[in-house]
Design a protein around this nucleic acid. Structure first.
Lengths: 140, 140
DNA sequence: CAGTAGTACTTGCTTGCGCAATCAATAATA
DNA sequence: TATTATTGATTGCGCAAGCAAGTACTACTG
């Protein structure tokens, strides 16, 4: 129970920190940043929308709108699938990759500072492990 | 970094789980639930708005609106402060206390199930500790 | 082949919340 | 005592995201 309250608090505290910074400096949401990150790591820098839904834990409608915004900004573009006309891919553009690089610099530095200044390397590792277990438990 | 991604994922996964249930069964947001909880624990079941801002980690405007909703629902009422005319207290009503009791039953059970089924008692304790440290680090 | 499920997205509507600006009341300074 | 800061709370506005309903396509079943 305490753990859960901690989770909610830690999330809103850190999130507000980071998203304010991301927003101000690069005009990106945390979720948008994560989507760009996932795309950058994906083969051919492309993912189906439904894969993003699972990875970023938004609802389908959330993903649709998020990608709309990124597309309007030129950071991402759509592509269709030849084998299944229902699916549309999201593809990271060069501009998107560049944006991600720029945002990563300040953002990741910020995260490291905050996280590391309060926890040891070892603690962070176990924290990450526990959280992933929780996330999978709740979503899957 | 992994820890941070885990934090975001774990939060949105668990949060969506719980808040969907709370919403459906009791018409409460997670934040609303937390506010009711804090009020119930406070002396005289009353807190200044600013105290809630700190405890629940919303912005002042968020608290104002949240309390508006709770007030319309009759779960909370306002009270003014005799020594400082700027502050207004939020006071838990009997209906609010009753609502909290009802919601707690299912909600807390749900939380325990999810959390405990994936982590040991010991792990949860350290998780809670780490998260609180992070939250305080980011907010304070 | 129909016809029924099921899947991948999209769209309209609503909501909760943050930001910035504002007001009112108190504290601090001249 | 006047004036300026500071603090607690509220309000207008905008935005991200969830839900529910709808569209388009594919896969199963008789």
């Amino acid at each position: 129970m305490q753990a859960f309250v901690g989770l909610v608090r830690a999330h809103s505290a850190t999130t507000r920190c980071f998203s304010a910074l991301l927003q101000r400096e690069h005009g990106l949401t945390l979720n948008e940043f994560e989507v760009l990150l996932r795309l950058a790591r994906a083969p051919d820098r492309r993912l189906k929308r439904i894969e993003l839904v699972e990875q970023v834990l938004l609802t389908p409608s959330g993903i649709t709108r998020l990608l709309d915004r990124l597309e309007r900004a030129g950071l991402v573009c759509k592509d269709s699938c030849s084998s299944d006309a229902r699916v549309t891919y999201a593809v990271l553009t060069d501009a998107g990759a560049e944006k991600l690089r720029a945002a990563s610099r300040s953002h990741i530095a910020e995260i490291r500072t905050l996280m590391c200044s309060h926890c040891s390397e070892r603690e962070l590792a176990s924290l990450a492990e526990l959280l992933h277990r929780l996330a999978d438990g709740a979503a899957g």
